[in-house]
């Protein structure tokens, strides 16, 4: 957490330029998702779509929600959310997948 002196704020034009660039990337990824959904990828469709979504989410979290400038504490908090989600998914799917495998 930065309680110390903050660097001078970037100019308005730079903020807009950067944001629009990220926005263009997000819309591009959205288009790619649509294409991937129709593409003959077989079993990979969901993996590709979720990968694209994860990239979009990372862009929003890091560049729009400013994790890039955030201190270690805030980054750790965000990581904790993901880690605990991983606990929930891993152990729950341990049961579900092993049940399905033996069904």
């Amino acid at each position: 957490m930065s309680a110390g002196p903050t660097p001078p704020a970037p100019s308005g034009a730079r903020i807009w330029r950067r944001a629009l660039l990220v926005w263009a990337g997000l819309i591009l990824l959205l288009g790619l998702s649509c294409l991937a959904a129709w593409a003959p990828l077989g079993g990979w469709t969901s993996a590709v779509n979720l990968g694209l979504a994860a990239t979009q989410a990372a862009l929003v979290a890091v560049l729009f929600m400013r994790l890039d400038e955030a201190g270690p504490l805030v980054r750790l908090t965000a990581a904790c959310g993901l880690f605990w989600l991983a606990i929930l998914f891993t152990l729950c799917l341990t049961d579900v997948l092993s049940r399905l495998a033996n069904a």
Binding site: S33, C34, A36, A37, W38, A39, P40, L41, T45, S46, N49, L50, L52, A53, Q56, A57, V60, A61, F64, M65
Partner: peptide, 22 residues
């Protein structure tokens, strides 16, 4: 607001995209 965005980013491929090809 950003977080609510991210939620939708994941809901979109889960709810709208499966089963389109083939």
């Amino acid at each position: 607001w950003g977080f609510v965005d991210i939620v939708w980013i994941f809901l979109y491929p889960l709810l709208y995209l499966p089963g389109r090809a083939g």
